[in-house]
Amino acid sequence: MTRDRYETELETLKEGVTSMATLVVERLREAARAYEDGDEDGGREIAERDDEVNELYLELESECIDLLALQQPVAGDLRFVVATFKILTDLERIADLAANIGRYAGTPGRDRLTVVPIADIAEMASSQVADAIAAYVEEDPEQCRTVVADDTDLDQRCEAAADDLVRYLATYDAAGDEHEALLADTKQFLLTVRDLERVGDHAVNIAARTFYMIESDDELIY
């Protein structure tokens, strides 16, 4: 294989990752909107379309394996392929989390918890993933550091949402069946916040692997 063709394959792989990331971030934002709107049908559709992301993941994973096996890249190219392989896994897991949130959209009675909306948390998490992928595409080490630092803000916002929920529950007067329904709603809300926090963790992973790809430095990997 000529060097030009090899470079083309590396660039094609990067473009594939970018397309997958765009799709995943879009799904995450759609899932959050469905949850906020209580759109059960929309949320279910998002969850059912997760196979599309899985197929893309397997296709790109295969490209990574072929490059490793057939081209035996070294130095920077090797770091790029290995980092990409791991980043694909993080993107696939973010898509799984988006599917989870879509499934939560139809929780009965979730309108009781509108006092603690998750739209802003979802946007923080989505933007963090988008920024991590931008750092990967542009090979920007400082952007990688920013993504990692921003995760602290997301963690704090998730913690604040849980605190808001506790304060709300302390003043909510419920009994009997309504009490049981409120407990179910609370569980789903906390699962949603947890999943969004995990999205941020995957964005950090992407940034850390990208930083290592660029700098050959594992400072951000933990």
Rank of each mutant, 00 (worst) to 15 (best):
L56W: 11
E7S: 07
A75K: 00
L68S: 04
E139K: 01
S127P: 05
V115H: 13
L78H: 09
T89E: 13
Y212V: 02
D50M: 02
T171L: 07
A207T: 11
E40A: 10
C64P: 13
R33P: 03
T8D: 15
Y222N: 10
A122R: 00
V74E: 13
I94S: 03
T84N: 10
D131E: 15
D120S: 03
G43M: 02
M213R: 01
A181L: 12
D217F: 07
T152F: 08
T22M: 06
Y104R: 09
R49C: 10
A99H: 09
D131M: 04
V115D: 15
I206P: 07
A34H: 10
V81A: 03
D111E: 15
P73H: 04
Y6D: 07
A161Y: 04
Q71W: 10
T192S: 11
I221N: 11
T12N: 12
Q156R: 08
N205D: 14
A162Q: 09
D41Y: 07
Y212L: 05
D173W: 07
V24E: 05
V17F: 06
R167G: 05
A119Q: 11
E36A: 13
T186P: 09
F80D: 04
Q188G: 10
V116M: 13
Q71A: 09
Q72I: 04
I94Q: 05
N54M: 00
D155I: 00
D218K: 09
A170G: 10
M20R: 02
S216M: 05
T114N: 15
D96C: 00
R27A: 07
Y136W: 14
Q71R: 08
V166P: 02
L220S: 11
Y212T: 05
I101M: 08
K14V: 12
D140V: 01
A181N: 14
Y168Q: 09
L183W: 14
A75C: 03
H202F: 14
L56R: 10
D120Y: 01
L182T: 15
F85I: 05
E9P: 01
E61Y: 10
E7Q: 12
Y212F: 15
D217S: 08
R198T: 11
V199I: 06
V199R: 01
A184D: 15
T18W: 13
R194L: 02
R112W: 15
I121V: 12
E123F: 00
T22P: 01
Y172R: 09
E55G: 00
I133L: 14
D41A: 09
D164V: 00
A160Q: 14
A95I: 02
D163I: 00
R33V: 14
E138H: 07
D185F: 03
L154H: 07
E63P: 02
R194W: 10
D153A: 10
I65V: 14
T8I: 11
F85Q: 14
E45H: 13
D131G: 06
D41F: 04
A170L: 12
F211D: 02
A160Y: 11
L70V: 06
A21L: 03
L220Q: 11
P73M: 00
V116L: 03
I206E: 04
C158F: 06
R33W: 13
D217Y: 08
A21G: 11
T107A: 04
D37A: 13
I214Y: 03
Q143Y: 01
G109N: 11
T2H: 11
V199C: 01
R198Y: 12
P117A: 07
D66W: 08
E9A: 07
A175I: 08
L191I: 09
R110M: 12
E15W: 06
G200D: 12
D150T: 11
R49Q: 15
I221V: 15
L70S: 09
